[in-house]
Amino acid sequence: MELTLHVSLGEGSCAKQPMSRKRSYSVLPGFGLTMGYTLTYLSLIVLIPLAALIVRAASMSLEQFWAAAFNPRVMASYRITFGTSLVAALVNSVFGFIVAWSLVRYRFVGRKLLDALIDLPFAIPTAVSGIALTAIYDRNGILGHTLFQWGIKSALSPLGICIALTFISLPFVVRTLQPALEEMDGESEEAAMCLGASRWETFRRVIFPALFPSLLTGFALAFARSLGEYGSVVFISGNLPMKTEITSLLIITKFEQHDHLGATAIAIVMLVASFAILMSINGLQWYLAKKFRG
């Protein structure tokens, strides 16, 4: 016989147990080098500096931390920051939805240009947006002037902060919704219509629930970004303590007064808030992926 064959009937067993590896074998080279570099660089640039913040915070006593992170002026800044961020994220959820819907589902002249413009807040430096928005909305600005005549103060007020944050966080909602809208197949809504649902019913029961996770993600991303925004807000807000002072600015103020501990405490609170938001997005996506993909 030209071919030797060995078929064992019982369960064959290997004399030596297979080694458990941290990674499975690959013929491609360079894992050690690139992984080593990645971890080293990540540690130097991101992890060690972040650890410095945490270690500094840990050196405070609980009372110290409490006094620094939750005194009235800081609490006022939280209220303003979280409040205006929430308003901006809500405004963008409504208008961002309409913008994304129009860009994906309708064809009109200038659509491509409009689509490209959505990323402007990413491309324009925040300080530049800040002075531009101030020029528009202060008492002599083209919109601010009209608003002022109606008795509405836009610059140097929480409204101004809301406007700046709406500008800065719009792309998050639109860019999260767009792929979800594009992926939606027309068939399920056609099916709903065939089953006798009205247009509005179809939107409410079929389309909107399918888009809701993306909308929520976009909302959360916009909210998280707004919480930390600095450049576009400081020019328009007027920075009055207790009234229009955002938390990012307060951190800088503390730091400039050489109150590093105060700044550290506030920074920790803000970091925890934004991590919590981003983790809940991840959790939401993980949950939905599990629920719908089995």
């Binding site: 913040l53 919480l227 930390g228 925004e229 600095y230 990012s248 920074a267 803000m270």
Partner: peptide, 9 residues
């Protein structure tokens, strides 16, 4: 996820 001001700080 880290805001610019905190990054600097």
């Amino acid at each position: 996820a880290v805001s610019p001001v905190i990054s600097g700080f």
